[in-house]
Computed example of a mutant assay.
Amino acid sequence: MPVAKDEFDDLRPLSFRDPAEVLDEDKLYTIYEISRLLQGLDADADLDGETEAILLDWAIPWMLTNSEEFVFAEPRTDDEPGYYGVDV
C-alpha cells in the first residue's frame, strides 16, 4: 500500500554507483558478496537470511542495469553460485 511522503523525515535521491566503484577489477564475486559491497559492508559480512534477501532486492536490478559492465564465470561446482566481475 502506498505511503505518504510526509511520513518520512529523510528523503534522498536514488543513485547507484558504477560497478568499477564497487568491485575490484581483478576479482570475481557472488551476487551475495556484491549485495553486501553495495551497502558498504564487507563482502563476507555475516547476515541473517531476511537482511540478505533485502540486499539482493537492491543488487539484482543494479546488476541488470549495468549488465554491459559485467563478465561472469560459471560455478566451479554444482553447489556454488556463479561469479561476476567488472569487464575491463
Score class of each variant (00 low, 15 high):
W58N: 00
E74W: 10
V71Q: 13
D10L: 11
P19L: 13
D87I: 03
A59F: 07
W58K: 00
D44R: 01
L11R: 06
T77V: 09
E80H: 10
P75G: 05
L56F: 10
G49D: 15
K27D: 11
T51D: 12
R12E: 06
P61N: 04
D48P: 09
A73E: 13
Q39P: 02
L28P: 01
I34L: 05
L55T: 00
P2C: 03
T30E: 15
D10H: 15
Y84M: 09
G49F: 10
D24M: 02
A59P: 04
E50L: 09
P61E: 09
E69C: 11
D78Y: 13
D9T: 10
D87F: 12
E80V: 11
V22D: 02
L38E: 04
P19F: 07
L64S: 03
S67I: 13
W62K: 02
D6F: 15
V86C: 12
R76K: 03
S15I: 05
V22K: 10
S67V: 14
A53I: 08
D46H: 07
R17H: 14
E74D: 10
D26Q: 13
S67Y: 10
T65L: 15
L38C: 08
F70A: 00
A53M: 11
Q39C: 06
A59M: 11
R12G: 01
P19S: 06
Y32Q: 04
T77F: 05
E68Y: 04
D26H: 15
F8G: 13
I34H: 04
P19Y: 08
L28T: 03
E21Q: 15
F70S: 02
T65S: 04
P61S: 08
F72R: 09
T51W: 06
E80T: 06
D44T: 07
R76P: 00
S15Y: 04
G85W: 01
N66I: 07
K27W: 10
Q39F: 08
D10E: 15
P13F: 13
E7V: 10
I60W: 13
E68V: 07
F72M: 12
W58P: 00
E7L: 14
A20Q: 13
L64V: 05
P75W: 08
L23P: 03
D9R: 10
E80R: 04
E69A: 14
A53W: 08
L56T: 01
I54Y: 15
I60M: 12
R76T: 00
L64M: 05
R36Q: 12
D42E: 14
A43D: 14
D79P: 00
E33T: 01
E21I: 13
I34M: 07
E80P: 06
F16Q: 14
E33Y: 08
T51A: 03
L23K: 02
I31D: 07
T30R: 03
E50R: 09
D44G: 01
E25R: 15
D44W: 11
A45N: 11
E68P: 02
P2T: 01
T51S: 12
D10F: 15
D9Y: 12
D6I: 09
P13R: 09
L38R: 05
G85T: 04
Y83N: 04
W58R: 01
L28S: 03
